[in-house]
Nucleic acid binder design. Structure first.
Lengths: 234, 234
DNA sequence: ACCACAATTGATCGAATGGTCAAGTCTGTG
DNA sequence: CACAGACTTGACCATTCGATCAATTGTGGT
């Protein structure tokens, strides 16, 4: 059993770790002193190493010491920056969430549907190419029922998706998209683009190519755009 | 270091556990006596429980004791049927592999492409509905680089896919399919259908429905068929 | 009824691993 | 220069968990 720790000033190294609704009121537990440049850099290196490891072997399959080694630190020192393995995992997850959501946010109501959706697909495929670990990490997490992210997903993601679904329905009402349950459109885009990141090893094994190859990338992009846009544009 | 155990007769309970190329020649280590009916049933219950657990929490995230409890056995007793956690995992994996490959095998050269591919999509979606854990287990395994399955996938799956790709190319040459890199067609089908199993919690959270709902199932099926077949049929 | 082997159990081992502690060293600021 | 607090380390603790072992019970076949 943990004794509920009271509002003591939080050392800088743990400043960003607090859960969203951790402090009902009062001082936001201002850090005592700023982090050193070296400390800042260490934090980043740890997060990078952790992303790579977690994305490959999952939370329970990753040893905290392996991350520390990758980052060039001792296990104890890593634990100085992140109070626990779970805290580190959560930090990686939230840090990556924005990257995942951003392309969806960028779908613009003012643009032409064809162009907007084409851009979205391209952006998602670029994300799959440039940050496959991020994609894999989310996939792992969501597939396991999003035990750490369920709250965020149920609110932030849900709200964002609802907004974009409304936009798609508007476009449908205007006759600029075929009638179609909009969710399926989103799911198809997510599924196909992320597939090339999440199952990269399989894709490479079967085709001998990867998204890193520009030719293959273009080919993939066109295949996805053709099938998805072909089905929803009037 | 394990001392290489020599061809002693393998007890029935471990009969199926041997790796494919384990016995270059000689007696196939005939089991001493048949398993009891109870034993057979236990093995099945263990495999079922293990599939459910592994699909949710992965290999390292699953405690062998949890599986035993789900199956109504003691941990020690489970270890009587499977010599190790890895052996159990591998048994679950191989047992499920056929289920995954079967729909692909069923793509028939004699049928019309539209019909054959429509059937394939439907079969994959039914598999996603009826055996989501199997789909999730494979996804987890492949996403992590298929450490246990790489050999099988590199041979069995590769060969099967190559055969079907050749068929698709034939259809293209006959003008019955649009020219198109066939792999992308397969990937799109896999990605979209499996998405509804692998990310079921997300799908449910965002739409409130699941494949178990017949209306939603039909809707999904039509959306996928429309976009994929629409793009590849001439 | 007997026997060989299947099935089951509880005790226990040992390695792996997350996390703590006390004792430092380094460094920016007053 | 002094000091507070950031940063680092190695020793150590506690627990979890896969696996083994010895011993006992159940059971199908002769």
């Amino acid at each position: 059993m943990l004794s509920q720790p009271v509002n003591r000033p939080l050392p800088m190294r743990h400043f960003a770790e607090e859960l969203p609704a951790a402090q009902p009121d009062g001082e936001p537990s201002t850090p005592v002193r700023a982090m050193t440049a070296a400390g800042e850099a260490n934090r980043e290196r740890i997060l990078d190493a952790a992303l790579a490891r977690f994305a490959r072997t999952g939370l329970s399959g990753t040893r905290i010491e392996a991350i520390a080694q990758d980052a060039g630190l001792s296990k104890t020192n890593l634990l100085y920056y992140f109070r626990s393995k779970n805290a580190l995992y959560l930090a990686v997850l939230t840090r990556t969430l924005d990257m995942w959501l951003e392309p969806l946010r960028a779908i613009d109501a003012d643009r032409d549907p064809r162009e907007a959706l084409g851009h979205y697909i391209t952006a998602k495929l670029e994300a799959a190419r440039d940050h496959p670990e991020a994609s894999r990490l989310f996939a792992l997490e969501v597939m396991q029922g999003a035990p750490m992210l369920s709250a965020v997903l149920a609110t932030d993601l849900k709200e964002l998706v609802d907004r974009k679904v409304a936009l798609l329905q508007l476009w449908q009402a205007e006759g600029r998209l075929k009638p179609h349950k909009p969710h399926h459109l989103l799911f198809q885009i997510w599924a196909t683009t992320q597939h090339y990141a999440d199952f990269a090893t399989q894709v490479e094994q079967l085709t001998g190519a990867s998204l890193a190859d520009p030719v293959f990338f273009q080919q993939t992009r066109e295949a996805i755009v053709a099938s998805i846009l072909g089905a929803v544009l009037p």
